[in-house]
């Protein structure tokens, strides 16, 4: 297995470097120059040339990319001209809150989706299965903010159970953790969309596993249905879920932008949203790169986790 992990790691590093190069190229050279964005009203040929020289934009492209990656590895993502702060500091400030929001949503989604998917597979074609499939299908087809708006309308504006947005009393990660009422709607919104795809996948994965002969043999041994499910089905049906969790990271990151801007929750998503409005390219570039790296890392961890959990890979 060591060989397998080493190979996966090398592949991940190569892909991560590729991500960095592509992101840099894409964001800096798909129209408009960074100088124009940074200088704003002061932009003219002379100031631009000076600015470019000052910030290394006059060097060959390859050198620029290598410089950028080199700096990024040292957590130096440049300087936000709009906010007058280093990008790394801005990111660092918000990272904890976003991690909390995403982590809580992911855990909640898994806690709901896995038992639900298995239950649906076991009771397939029952009324409950149809209802759950219908709900999942609807959520799956719904933009995150629309779900969030519905929740705000009913649970916040009509019933006053939760606040409609995250207030000023939540500014640190710790405050986010200690204010479950304020966080309920953002977490549920983010989790609901993930639940939709997870439970659909879990259902089909459990259905595949249920059709295998080892389930039949487990029943033929005289095991109770519950034991058949927990001892034989759960682990085998969950293996593909590990990969899916890895693959869900880009969706979670995108969901963060929507949820945080909807609920005004001060995380990386909101930072990105503000940067979009202000055309603050160093932040956009940095967070896109980080999003890519997180995705690569997530997939790598998922691959390794599958290898550990699946003896067919572990012992090869």
């Amino acid at each position: 297995m060591t060989g397998y992990i080493v190979r996966r790691c090398i592949a991940a590093v190569i892909i991560a470097l590729g991500v960095a190069a592509v992101v840099y190229l894409l964001l800096n050279f798909t129209g408009g120059s960074p100088a124009a964005a940074a200088l704003g009203n002061h932009y003219n040929k002379i100031t631009a040339a000076l600015w470019n020289k000052q910030h290394g934009y006059d060097k060959p492209l390859v050198v620029q990319i290598v410089d950028y990656v080199w700096n990024a590895i040292h957590l130096n993502f440049g300087y936000s001209y709009k906010q007058g702060q280093s990008v790394a500091a801005l990111l660092n400030e918000d990272a904890g809150r976003t991690a909390y929001l995403s982590g809580a949503a992911l855990v909640l989604a898994l806690l709901i989706a896995m038992p639900l998917g298995i239950a649906q597979a076991v009771k397939r074609n029952s009324i409950g299965d149809y209802v759950a499939t219908g709900v999942a299908f609807t959520l799956y087809s719904m933009p995150a903010f629309f779900l969030g708006l519905i929740l705000i309308q009913f649970l916040a504006l009509d019933l006053h159970v939760f606040p409609a947005f995250v207030g000023d009393n939540v500014t640190t990660t710790w405050q986010a953790v200690t204010h479950p009422l304020e966080m309920a709607l953002p977490i549920v919104t983010l989790a609901a969309l993930t639940v939709a795809s997870f439970s659909r996948y879990m259902r089909s994965s459990a259905l595949d596993a249920l059709a295998q002969d080892y389930i039949r043999l487990a029943r033929a041994k005289g095991l109770r249905e519950r034991a058949v499910l927990t001892r034989h089905l759960l682990r085998n049906a969950s293996l593909p879920m590990i990969t899916l969790v890895g693959l869900s990271i880009p969706g979670l990151l995108a969901g963060n932008i929507i949820t945080e801007s909807l609920f005004n929750y001060p995380g990386l998503g909101l930072l990105f949203y503000d940067a979009l409005q202000n055309l603050d390219y160093p932040i956009l570039l940095a967070y896109t790169l980080i999003g890519g790296i997180l995705t690569v890392t997530g997939n790598l961890i998922a691959d390794i986790a599958v290898a550990v959990a699946d003896p067919r890979i572990r012992l090869d």
């Binding site: 080892y214 041994k221 085998n236 699946d310 067919r312």
Partner: peptide
């Protein structure tokens, strides 16, 4: 009936590849 299955009546299937739990 569960007390009978695997205890008094046991069964062998054709495909040993899919009849054994791959993760146990």
């Amino acid at each position: 009936l569960r007390a009978v299955r695997g205890n008094e009546i046991a069964i062998i299937f054709q495909d040993s590849q899919s009849s054994l739990n791959p993760t146990m």
